[in-house]
Structure formats: C-alpha cells, structure tokens
Write a protein that binds this DNA or RNA. Structure first.
Length: 220
DNA sequence: GCGACAG
DNA sequence: ATCTTGTCGC
C-alpha cells in the first residue's frame, strides 16, 4: 500500500507558496526504478458547481498498456484554482485515490507540470514527494517558452523558464501538438520522455492519462 | 499600469 | 476544468 508523507494543506495562497518552498528541496532526481513495469495515470474532473469533483487513478502494465488496477474518489475541492497552486486543489483527492490502490505503481504520470513551474514544484513534484514514488508531469498547455520541436514522433525541444531548462516539448505523434514533459520526482528528463513515448504509441496523450480521464467522466 | 496565468 | 457544431480522416 502507498504511504503518504505527513503534510499540511494550507488555506491561503501565501501559506501554499510557503509549503511549496518547504517541500521543494525534497525533490530527488536519482532512485529511478531499474525497469518500469507499471505506470499510473491520474486525473480529476469537476461538476457544474466546480467544487464537486471525481478523482481517478489507473494503473497500466508497461509495455502491454492493459489496466491492472484503478480507483476513483468523489469529493469536494477545498482550494480554489490558481496558476502555480494547482496541486493544492487536485492533490488531496488524488492522494485519496492512490491510497485505495492495491498495486503500487512504479511511476506516477501526472496531468500537469513537474519542474516546469514558477517555483519548480508543480503537481508532479508535489505528488512525488508526498508518496516518494517516481513521478513525471505531462502537460498540454505551456507554462514556459520553447521553440517548436520537429514534426516527427520523438522530436523534442527544451522548455525554458527564467533562463533554465525545466522540461521538454515532446512530439508524441507526427504533426500533432507536442506535450510538455517535466520531471516530478526520482527521475531524469530523458527517462520521462522515453516513458511518455512508450505510453503514447497511438495518440497524443499517454494511455495512462487517457484511461484516467475516461474513468473520471464515466464515474459522474 | 498591463498582460500572463498547469487544470 | 467546462461550455459546444461541424468537419476531416482513418
């Protein structure tokens, strides 16, 4: 079973920023699994009220990409959405879903950013640190700047923020808009991109997030 | 002051 | 995130 690190959930934005700065040094870049046999996709969907939500985790076998475990949780958003503070809204229900898994995945594939974040501590870093599981972020909307990568599957270009490289714009399919990959915890950028390509043999997004996404919209 | 701003 | 028609392509 997944053990979640002792942590606190702030009620104001200023406190939330302080929590990020406190947890940021705990991000590690070593300790990757020798081989990824299972990968978890995580996603959250909201109802009309925008505070009632469904969180889901789907664990897929790698490289078969078959679903080996999953969990869903219904709940309420306790923190308003704010750019840079995304994790305080989505991490609580996602952690609740992760606790329900009977299979501990080798890596968490998060919907959003990892180090490609204003304080280098996006959702993927947050979930990675709190569970101490390897984690990566796969986003659809850029937070940093990058030159368009080549048009072929596998082509990538560095994402930069404040002059430093924080991730990769990765083309998962020919001529399709790239996804934004960044390290969350216990992993390298190269390994993260390699994994995303392995998880996205046919569509733009990894099968992990596609499965989790399908799960949250059929659970409402 | 103005624009930008993961999901 | 969510609100939504038609359209192009496999």
């Amino acid at each position: 079973m997944i053990e979640v690190r002792e942590h606190e959930w702030p009620s104001t934005r200023a406190e939330a920023v302080a929590v990020q700065q406190r947890l940021r040094p705990l991000v590690r870049f070593d300790g990757q699994p020798a081989e990824v046999r299972t990968a978890a996709g995580l996603d959250v969907a909201y109802d009309e009220s925008s505070d009632e939500l469904v969180a889901a985790v789907a664990v897929l076998d790698v490289p078969a990409l078959s679903v080996v475990d999953s969990a869903t949780v219904r709940g309420r958003a306790e923190f308003p959405y704010a750019p840079g503070l995304f994790a305080f809204r989505e991490a609580p229900p996602l952690l609740a879903a992760l606790r329900q898994l009977s299979v501990v995945p080798d890596v968490l594939v998060c919907d959003g950013q990892g180090l490609a974040h204003p304080r280098r501590f996006g959702l993927a870093c947050h979930l990675g640190v709190l569970t101490d599981l390897p984690a990566i972020g796969v986003g659809k909307t850029p937070m940093g700047r990058f030159d368009p990568p080549g048009q072929r599957r596998g082509d990538r270009s560095p994402i930069r923020m404040d002059g430093e490289e924080v991730g990769s714009a990765l083309r998962t399919q020919h001529g399709v808009k790239p996804v934004l990959v960044s390290v969350g915890h216990r992993c390298t950028l190269d390994a993260a991109c390699g994994l995303v390509l392995e998880l996205a043999p046919r569509y733009r997004l990894p099968e992990t997030t596609r499965t989790a996404d399908h799960l949250v919209r059929t659970t409402r």
